[in-house]
Nucleic acid binder design. Sequence first.
DNA 1: CATGAATGAGTATTCATTCAT
DNA 2: TATGAATGAATACTCATTCAT
Lengths: 234, 234, 234, 234
Amino acid sequence: MPALPEPLAHFLLPEDGERPPKRERTRRQLLQAAVQVLSARGLAGTSIQEIARVAGMAPGTVYNHFRTREEIFEALAVALSTTLNERVVQSYQGIEDGAQRMSIGMRRFLWLGETSPAWALLLMQLSMAFPQVIELIKPYSLGDLRLARSQGRFRVADEEAAIDMVFGTCLRAMTRIAEGEVAAPQAYVSELLQMVLCGLGMAPADAAEVMARPLPPFALPAAPLAARARRRLA
Amino acid sequence: MPALPEPLAHFLLPEDGERPPKRERTRRQLLQAAVQVLSARGLAGTSIQEIARVAGMAPGTVYNHFRTREEIFEALAVALSTTLNERVVQSYQGIEDGAQRMSIGMRRFLWLGETSPAWALLLMQLSMAFPQVIELIKPYSLGDLRLARSQGRFRVADEEAAIDMVFGTCLRAMTRIAEGEVAAPQAYVSELLQMVLCGLGMAPADAAEVMARPLPPFALPAAPLAARARRRLA
Amino acid sequence: MPALPEPLAHFLLPEDGERPPKRERTRRQLLQAAVQVLSARGLAGTSIQEIARVAGMAPGTVYNHFRTREEIFEALAVALSTTLNERVVQSYQGIEDGAQRMSIGMRRFLWLGETSPAWALLLMQLSMAFPQVIELIKPYSLGDLRLARSQGRFRVADEEAAIDMVFGTCLRAMTRIAEGEVAAPQAYVSELLQMVLCGLGMAPADAAEVMARPLPPFALPAAPLAARARRRLA
Amino acid sequence: MPALPEPLAHFLLPEDGERPPKRERTRRQLLQAAVQVLSARGLAGTSIQEIARVAGMAPGTVYNHFRTREEIFEALAVALSTTLNERVVQSYQGIEDGAQRMSIGMRRFLWLGETSPAWALLLMQLSMAFPQVIELIKPYSLGDLRLARSQGRFRVADEEAAIDMVFGTCLRAMTRIAEGEVAAPQAYVSELLQMVLCGLGMAPADAAEVMARPLPPFALPAAPLAARARRRLA
DNA sequence: CATGAATGAGTATTCATTCAT
DNA sequence: TATGAATGAATACTCATTCAT
């Protein structure tokens, strides 16, 4: 399975210089194995025994970390969604324009479909089975939506409907991109998101201007304090 | 399982006055049973044996009509999608305005989520597993989109992206409505589709006006000639 | 399936100019279909439904002709064995030397393995499941064996053992030839049967001499009287 | 199922004083159960579920030891053939005369048909489905054949044909004996093998002399060193 | 904690046979 | 006689989960 783009790649790996306790290490190995099998076989086709086999462990071991088959997938769904979320939000930390913040979120999301189709499809699979995947992202989108509205950038009558349009469009577009059905993803994304922004009440010119701004880089998170301290000593 | 609204209810039933041959009758009973089980247990949880049991038949009988487990679901997906499609298109037969045609399609679709949540969720399940469900509808949407564009009602740069926004939004909205997560579906649908129409390039006022027009009735299809003739004789 | 050599080919076909009643014709079609399926799938893998399908009939029809699955195979076994037997015996009708008669029987048998491997393997399959295949041939072999003994050509202490050596050797050799494991069947058969004849008490020189005599032609049977009569009228 | 004669009986049992690990014990229990069911129902009629039932285990357990239905039968075929082979070869270890070695092999083989008909028939069944059964024995027979030839005892033109006569005759004779069709097996075997030896080029008197020599005892193998040591300590 | 053998209910699918038409 | 839809028991194989070691 092709690696995730850097800022996401480590969501299952120990932080730099970090050496998590064995229990945690085993758990991550299992989740990594689950990713592999899920990508290859799909949710329904993924068995505990194969996850264990891929992780190089005995089937029984899985149950020392997860009470149930479902629990593995759910843990994975939450971890993946949370990490993606964190990184995206962090990438537009300094930006004040609600419309731009939201456009960045959507662009980053669709960018994942283009650069890591396997991961994107995995995320889609999990989002269907585990609503948390989306529920975890929603608050951030809603925050940006309200910000943009208060700034007079969006003109939205029904927040709920707006969020549904945003997520519905992005989920579908991500799938189509990841499945290789979109010939020129860059242009496609640009046009698609301009339409969405217009739907949210922006004038076409403003939407185009927002989409023309550069996408801020997608950085690694600052290492947690403890890890940073340890690294300094080494 | 609550009945489908009238114009759809008969997609598995014999036409009025029709008495299909036994083979066809059994096939429909099986599909009906499949609907029940699918709704209750979900795609992955639906076994051939339970379909047979619900249909009051032996497991082997299923294989006189479908070569494979998949084939049942696929047949159901296609039948459901096709019927819905036919009825919707028929309901706006006389209407010339592309924007209105498209808005009617979307409204009718979401209306199904409201009036027949179980059926709507079934359709969603099937649409994930069988792309045909959507591919069968696409050409009609695309036709209306182009019509509206040629009439100067829509201003769309990328047809593909536009279609994805339409379908993505409607699929997600339909699910949320069917799952009862939307408090006031009427208003929600109105606002949602106005946003979509704006995204497709309409001015807010025009979008509002289109959405204000009445939804044409959803009629039973004219019976096929042969059936009508037979009925007249009876 | 490659045709059987002429004198055997017609064991499932109507005699020349013959037009058997429909019942008989259907029965033969079923047996022919059974041959095809058996050759392709083996005894255990042959289903009634496929025989019917290959014969272009409904499964139920089979049961108008055979009470049971077994019965088809048995009928086929007996028919095939009987026909082969008849033709072989007929081919050495005029020959008086018991040793030669027996050698001809064995040669003809192995010749089938070489010229019609598929049929030979079918015959082997059937002979394992239906002892009749062999029991039908035995009396003829035994007759020839006794003749040769009374002529002082064979020196055999135990008839039963002799017959078992003959059949055991021929059955195994036929299989190996039919499966293509024998590089030079002609020489192989010659050496093999010389050994068998020596085992039956002949001197090597006599055995060689018998095997050097030409194999009499394998002719079509004289048509049965009734058929001949009918043909003359036509 | 009647026990196998001693030297063969243990091919599924732990060596004396041995206590194999659990996995191995279970595997042998499964093979033993397979023997029972195969003998009673035949190859085609033997189901995994019945093997498991007879072994007192759950059906799934079988698949922890054999990947496939076939694999059980094959494992059994190989184990049975190998053990028989080993014991026979060992029983004529010190004998130098190739003709005698070969005659002992054949006699022992047919003796199994007489003393353990059920096992013999099982072996026949397996030998039809799994050529390995015979292929494993062939090299030894071929070795003896060549030895006898080099000693001037056999006069054989075609090794391949000779081996086929030997195996063909023995397989058929074994079946007939095991099925109780032979009234006086001792005499029968003696006459049969004299014929075979004559076929291989011996003079009748020599063949009779070889067959008159006593059959060497059929001993248990020397226990492996480790096992012997352990036993001494106990 | 990790192991991995064992479990046993569950699954899709096949197929000989019956029987109403 | 032929049909072919229906039957329903049978079967190989899977897999989440348990538990003794």
